[in-house]
Design a protein around this nucleic acid. Sequence first.
DNA 1: GATCATAGTCGTCTGCCTGACGATAAACAC
DNA 2: GTGTTTATCGTCAGGCAGACGACTATGATC
Lengths: 252, 252
Amino acid sequence: MPYDPSAFPPFAVTVDLVVLTVRRHSLCALAVRRGEPPFQGRWALPGGFVRAGEDLAQAAARELAEETGLCVHDPAAPSQDNGAHLEQLATYGDPERDPRMRVVSVAHLALAPDLPAPRAGGDASNARWAPVEELLEQSGYGRPGEAVAPLAFDHARILADGVERARSKIEYSSLATAFCPPEFTVGELRRVYEAVWSVALDPRNFHRKVTGTPGFLVPTGGTTTRQGGRPAQLFRAGGATLLNPPMLRPEV
Amino acid sequence: MPYDPSAFPPFAVTVDLVVLTVRRHSLCALAVRRGEPPFQGRWALPGGFVRAGEDLAQAAARELAEETGLCVHDPAAPSQDNGAHLEQLATYGDPERDPRMRVVSVAHLALAPDLPAPRAGGDASNARWAPVEELLEQSGYGRPGEAVAPLAFDHARILADGVERARSKIEYSSLATAFCPPEFTVGELRRVYEAVWSVALDPRNFHRKVTGTPGFLVPTGGTTTRQGGRPAQLFRAGGATLLNPPMLRPEV
DNA sequence: GATCATAGTCGTCTGCCTGACGATAAACAC
DNA sequence: GTGTTTATCGTCAGGCAGACGACTATGATC
């Protein structure tokens, strides 16, 4: 069909964020409470409209900074610490997903080290880190449990997709280090895997695997005893981004 | 910020398709020649506007049918043959990507068995299957070679992302069978892997791997000699979608 | 200070999978 | 029949992962 500027319907385009972190041995996501209809009072993923001159990645980084204060880790400037990993997740465009109008949401996935309490921003009257299994209960994506209202819109689906992406991506990439502070121990990294996968890993085999993968971990020379027990070596994330062979996720 | 219907800029939303197939031992993508500005006369990926009441996946399936006649393989109705695999790839929303207006494109990846010559549809004055390396030359995503005009818009980038997705996904899933006709031999499946990865695989180890993976291949009982040589067993794709352990892509 | 609990680190062993490659089988071309 | 092509089965060595023993170094408790 020939080009006709009036032939296409207008859409609103938003970015929604699945921000994951590991707190107290469990995988948590950032949720904001909606301060207005629709879904007023319900929990939702942070997000907002893409602005006129703005790229999708820019919009996601801006929203992330507004909600958490996190700066996106720029591979060109690795000196910047506390930078989070941010990547595009998927796009959700069901015509019925927002009752107000036709909204297409480009969801992004952010991985961050454990942070202090989030600050609520924008139209959210509250914000919190919630265990993902708790957020996904009552939504068909988790085990039934406490009577918690499901996430607004299709955000449970988006969160489930983001969690699944994170779970599979730490298998074959060094992304698990994005959940850790700049310096961390092998045990802390192992607890990240255990929290994200909800499994127990053998500390000895895990240690052999991560220290034996070239470029994954770089020793800093320091040690720490913050976990109790024998002091552990401190590491930084090495340059390698792909793990080959991958870390194997145990069968359930 | 409070909700204000006038606070967001309007976008056009399109779907673009990376349709891949294997022809004559090389990975090919569907390209359409643009019949109008911008980029008039240049090759581009097929695609079009998402309609008002249409889901993104519906729009992609509709465009695919318009351009190729392919029906999307519905897992709920596996009896339908010649069904292609279709999945969302990524979304591209650079403000400058379309000089006419602000367009966000939700790219999809389709994998199809070898097809007869494509039919040009919509505003395309021509359509063809072109080897991906040829389409990616001159675009910074392939080796320099013949003087071929690069793809329109950011379609070279989209194609490169789609090809990379296909290359990595056949490692750990049974998706390579989507490139094959309903019944195929181990050798034909091997040539799919060889074409997509541009490598040579050992026929004996490949045979051991695919026949030894439960649920990957189901023998139909028939044999064929369409490749010459000793008759080969015919298989259908089994129910397994994930390959565990994965097929290993040889180092370059 | 001895003992215990906790966590980290190094080794060993076994089984599975892969890559390399030899050998055989069944068709077709001449 | 001989040669060529493709399919299929087998063998062997190396690498890696899971299971698990052993030892080390700290803090807590008695």
